[in-house]
Design a protein around this nucleic acid. Sequence first.
DNA 1: AACACCATGTAAGCTGTTACATGATTAA
DNA 2: TTAATCATGTAACAGCTTACATGGTGTT
Lengths: 173, 173
Amino acid sequence: MEPMSGYDIKKRFEEIASNFWNESYGQIYPILKGLYTEGLAIRSIEKQVGKPDRHIYELTELGHQELKNWLLEPVERHVGRHEILLKLFFGPKVSVEDNIEQVKHFQKNHINELAQLQSIKLKIETENCKKTHLPYWMMTIRFGELMNEALLKWSDEVLSTMKEMKEKKYKDS
Amino acid sequence: MEPMSGYDIKKRFEEIASNFWNESYGQIYPILKGLYTEGLAIRSIEKQVGKPDRHIYELTELGHQELKNWLLEPVERHVGRHEILLKLFFGPKVSVEDNIEQVKHFQKNHINELAQLQSIKLKIETENCKKTHLPYWMMTIRFGELMNEALLKWSDEVLSTMKEMKEKKYKDS
DNA sequence: AACACCATGTAAGCTGTTACATGATTAA
DNA sequence: TTAATCATGTAACAGCTTACATGGTGTT
């Protein structure tokens, strides 16, 4: 996108990609070093007063080509590990009430996520840095919206099923 | 659920949980060993003719308690890393046509996944092993259905946006 | 006085996949 | 004959998080 420091990259992830990606310094800094030694990026140092120096990395022609190649590779499917489903898989080990609590907590989380998404959306729309990126970034937001809406629908469905199970249990006993 | 070997566990994951979880032997066998040495499981050997022996593990009382404790812990949110979104994040680096190809491939994958889900659903319904598990396992299936439906809706939306972008580009040039 | 921000980085440790090794049986 | 199924396991590697170390500036 543009010359950046490791610190900047982390920040960008947190500000506008936090709904679908995160990366720790422990990954970022060694990888930038690697890009540099492999000739995929160049590095320049920006001196500052009262603050540490900034190490600015910028892709070389080779680096841009590598990135392009990666972008063209089709994304292969990988199973998203949803811990809540693994827990429900063992549902009968605990009480229906316990499972209800679990799902309610899950639901709350995703209501929050939807709200956070809206603030990221606003940030992207108003900052409006590069016009070419805008439509693509909006697609990542839309992804989050549809996912979270589906997740909330699922929570509702599951909660009413569980409530039925609870009532049946009372009838039996 | 019941006494099982590492091989059995892998199989169960593949047969009825492959839509939300997978686990490799490289994880399973060392972990089973660990459970045994920590007193969370006991191990017995089932001898077979013409086939390797089966190492059957069964949770101890302590093991069951640990599992229960884990089930009661609320699931904390973690960002699912969707590679396709990271690629779209750099969308302007390649052509609109290239991005369309990427999304079409994604769409195909999720149509397949929906089909696979239906066969897992059938397996669970017909095998019908333990009645107590059935409703919970169906919830994991429903999760997959709603996710994939949302993903397909997203693909449709994104593809039509991209087609518009393509047309605009032609007008400009 | 305590904390957050700026900015770099490393080391230890956990998590996870892939490939390998073994070896008999059965189906295409 | 080739491949799959049964069944165990290990070793090498890749990916990722967390905690630590440094140290000045600005805010509550």
